[in-house]
Nucleic acid binder design. Structure first.
Lengths: 247, 247
DNA sequence: TGAATAGTGTCTGTGAGACAGTATAGG
DNA sequence: CCTATACTGTCTCACAGACACTATTCA
């Protein structure tokens, strides 16, 4: 942190958001259509520059989030993901982006932000697979964000952020299945979420009917870290290479 | 990432390093004595501003690392930790720091860097407990870095970065014990590290004598993520509150 | 042969996955 | 009573922690 008399080179700081939600049982990412150069007309993650008046980075992320989704801070999970600052990532010059991960309960419809021409929920697999082109290094950022969410579902109560204030265990299971992209055994899932004390707490005998037996309602519990964790099933690996990546 | 005609406020970017190593069986952090204002004479994490010529953030971290420890990039683990950009964290103005975590094998002696008056290995607990005062928000950064390393030891082969190219299982166990601050059962440790295929690979029948039976030498294996992981023993909790933090 | 370090084998309980049936509502 | 959804109980196996002894070198 020490410095000499020479003035260090200033950079421009932006905040970019990987906003995830569940729509019809599938994981979606919010993308906006860029209304300005560079990459005008192309899809990109929502985000923007810091305000002038010494705005905090996290505050800027909250601001962008509410501009894009009309979501209040409550019931939204927001955390820092990492810095993306490669020198050539933005043709305008040295622009360093602080990426954030936001998790929101299913939202009715996207809201066009002030800066963006249009906003839309895009299936996560379309972004991951490259079927949808995105500006800058935003595919990388989105990929990192989704993987971060997948991992964090195992060890934290992050999944409840995809649900509203009240939810059933079946809904919670759908969250895990959608984010992980795998089917889970209902009985084992019930056992495990209830074994992790402090994860979810039952709301009296409340219920909600959809044509079958009413379901118990739960809300998020006080615990942030899950113990025991809900380990993600290993994807079918090519024999003797179970889980574990080469260097 | 969209922007208007107004020019966004530039910020100054620094790179700060949490460099960890093992010395006489204890975890140590490298601190430098600041030679410049602000906080002149106080301890701080090594770091500095980006160079002018479009230097990459990771390159800057490598540069600071070698300036401070005379360590080549090889055998050093270096990864991004996070961004620390609170508006009032630096009295000079808006200075945003990209913190990095570096893990190095035991180094003989610290090397005074170009910018720092002095550099010294400080026991991690002295920094965590607050016994050593550090400048800026560097205690927070160091705390986050150490916790990150502790967690990552469970699921990745990071521990081998604390060792040289060749090491014994006993040495590897000392790494885990020092970083986690707990004693481990030798027999279970042997079983687990050998069960995680690709973690360590034996080097023929090489050996090294220190007065007892020669030990098998190993080197780091190709796998980066450990499966099964080496779960950190839960610290003795106050009954019925085993692992899991309040919100 | 004694000291010092390296390495191994077993038992037991808990948790994870596989699996099938019961319970309660609306029509 | 049929359908649709919510929930529960058991068995088995693999892994984790606790624990004690054997192996190899040097002085």
């Amino acid at each position: 942190m020490q410095h000499d008399a020479w003035s260090p080179p200033p950079v421009l700081l932006t905040v970019d958001l990987v906003i995830l939600t569940l729509r019809d049982g599938h994981l979606h990412v919010l993308l906006v259509e860029r209304g300005e150069d560079p990459f005008r007309g192309m899809s990109a993650l929502p985000g923007g520059f810091l305000n002038h008046d010494g705005e905090e980075i996290l505050d800027a992320a909250h601001r962008e989030l509410s501009e894009e989704t009309a979501l209040t801070s409550s019931w939204v999970h927001l955390e820092q993901l990492g810095v993306y600052g490669e020198a050539d990532r933005d043709p305008r010059g040295r622009v360093v982006s602080v990426a954030h991960l936001a998790i929101a309960p299913g939202l009715p419809e996207p809201v066009a932000g002030t800066d963006a021409s249009d906003a839309a929920w895009v299936p996560a697999h379309a972004v991951l697979s490259g079927k949808v082109e995105v500006a800058f290094d935003h595919r990388r950022i989105a990929t990192d964000g989704i993987e971060h969410a997948r991992t964090k579902l195992e060890f934290s109560s992050l999944a409840t952020a995809f649900c509203g204030a009240e939810f059933t265990i079946a809904e919670l299971q759908q969250v895990y299945e959608a984010v992980w992209g795998t089917a889970l055994d209902t009985r084992n899932f019930y056992r495990k979420v209830q074994a992790a004390k402090g994860f979810i707490v039952p709301l009296g005998t409340d219920r909600r009917s959809t044509g079958g037996r009413p379901a118990q309602l739960y809300r998020a519990g006080p615990k942030t870290v899950l113990f025991p964790p809900l380990i993600r099933p290993a994807p079918p690996a090519a024999e003797e290479n179970m889980r574990g990546e080469e260097e």
